[in-house]
Amino acid sequence: MKKLRMAVCTAIVLMAIGSAANAEEFSPKRIVSLDGGTTETLFALGAGGLVVARDEGSTYPPEAAKLPAISTGHQLNVEAILALKPDVVVGRNRSMSGPGMHILEQAHVRVVRLPDDPGIEVAQLRIKNLASLIGKEEDAKKIIESMQTDLDRLEEKKKAVSGEAAPRVLIVYLRPGVVMMMGEDSNAAAMTRLAGGRFAVPGMKGYKELNAEAAVAAQPDVILCYTEGLEATGGADALWNRPGLAETPAGRARCLIAMDDLLLAGFGPRTGDAALQLFDRLHGQGTTVAKAHP
């Protein structure tokens, strides 16, 4: 199912780009990016200057965060986008739903949808797709090569620890008053598997409030969360004060890994780097990291 969706998305992207290529060498001058990973990729390709607006999740690199934010996740201001006179609006499928896109297309703005799915192949595919949209195929090759180098190193490191039991990872999402857990279909879970961790609540999908007892029953060795959520909810001390988490093996050893959400779950150009970082924290002696910087 996922594969099919991916294939369809790829086809759509390729068609969009193909038709662009047919019509008088389309090269965008003003791009609106509606997704953090996409913005990051555009900057990595050296096309940051073309981006005129971003969504709120586009926080990396720091120059991207200075651009005007046009959408706030659940709301898309179509008029504000049109006012910027973009020639391309690009993002991942999830951020491109809703009637707004249709209006943009009617206004002859090219809407490019990239596939959502996590994973290395899709991450590389997205970079290639974006590169061919702006004619930066060479830069894409470099990014993908360096990603591959990281991933090869990761494979070696994984082989070195293949005798040990993989650490069980519980991925939580912290908001004031609620601890949510992210399911095995989340990007963060995909990154965890890539980095050699074991998902602690197999079968859990989506995005649900975590039952305190179930956290203990899952017996996680590590709690993984986003840096932003951890800081917004009072840091590591407040986390261990939540009922349940302190009683887990991770809680007793105070094993907490916090990573920037775009790095951990973006599956953008830093995918290989992120997987290496997570691997080191999961397996290295420095597992007891209370706070980590991207």
Partner: peptide
């Protein structure tokens, strides 16, 4: 909530 340091009691 965004920058609360009072943690769980706020």
């Amino acid at each position: 909530g965004a920058d609360s340091r009072i943690g769980l009691w706020g």
